[in-house]
Amino acid sequence: MDNITDKIRIAKKRLLQMHFEKKMGHIGGNLSALDAMMTLHHEVMQTEDKFILSKGHSAGALYITLWSLGRLTEEDLKTFHGEGTKLPGHPVPGWLSEIPVATGSLGHGFPVALGIALGWRLSHKPGHIYCLMSDGEWQEGSNWEALIFFAHHRLPNLTVLVDCNRLQGFGTTQEVASMSQLQEKLAAFNLKIISVEGHAPSQIKKALDNTKGGIVMLNTVKGAGISFMENRMEWHYLPMNQAQYDQALMEVEKI
C-alpha cells in the first residue's frame, strides 16, 4: 500500500492546486473523500466496473483521481470550473466513460447505481458498481427509498460507500438532523455494513473486498490532512488564500 499512499499525496497536492488556482471552495468534502476514491480506483476497481459519485460536490477529488489514472490530462484540469469546461463543479456525463451520470443534486446517485446493478444482473453482464455518498445526503428521502429497494433486491454487484465526515452545509449532521448515529439507522435494513477508518487505504481496500452488496461506512474528517481545515464547516465553502495554500501544501508534504 506504500505506492497508493504516495499516489494519494501527489493527488492531494494537485487537488489543492486546482482549487486554489480557480479560487473554488468545496475543498473540505473533497479531502474527506479523496483517500477512498483513490484507493477504490487504483486498488479495487476492474475495467468493467463503474463508479458513481453521488456526492457530486466532491467532483474535484474525482477529477484528480481520474488524472492520477491518466484519464484526464493537465490541460483538462486547467479548465476546471472555467468557461467551456467539461469539469464543472459537479460532474457532467456524456464525454468520459468514468463519469457515467450527472450528479450534484443529492439523493440521485444511489438509486441510479441500483438501476445499473439491476440491469447488469438481469442481462448477466459482469462488473461491479461503487457509489460514494455523503452522510448528510442521507437526509434525502430518495435514498431511503433506494435503501428499501437495495435490501429487497439483494444486489451483490453494488457497494455503497458513505463518507461520514459528520459536517454538512450549515452544521453537523447531529445538530441538523440528529443523524450522527447513521450506521445504526442503516443497520436496520439488514444489509452487510462495515465501518472503517476512511483515510487508511489498506482498511478501505479490505472493507471493499468484503462488502459486496453492502455498505462501507468511511469514518472521515472534513478537510482531512490540513490542520486549519479539519472538522471546520467553513471549508465546505471557502477558497484558500495564498498563505493558506502554502501551509496546506507543506502539511501534505509531511504526510
Partner: peptide, 21 residues
C-alpha cells in the same frame, strides 16, 4: 414492482437504461 417509491423508481429506471435495457 418498485413499490410506493416513485423517486427511486425513476432513478432506477434511468440506471436500467444506462445498463442497456
Amino acid at each position: 414492482n418498485a413499490g410506493v417509491a416513485e423517486q427511486n423508481m425513476m432513478s432506477v429506471a434511468a440506471g436500467l437504461a444506462y445498463s442497456g435495457l
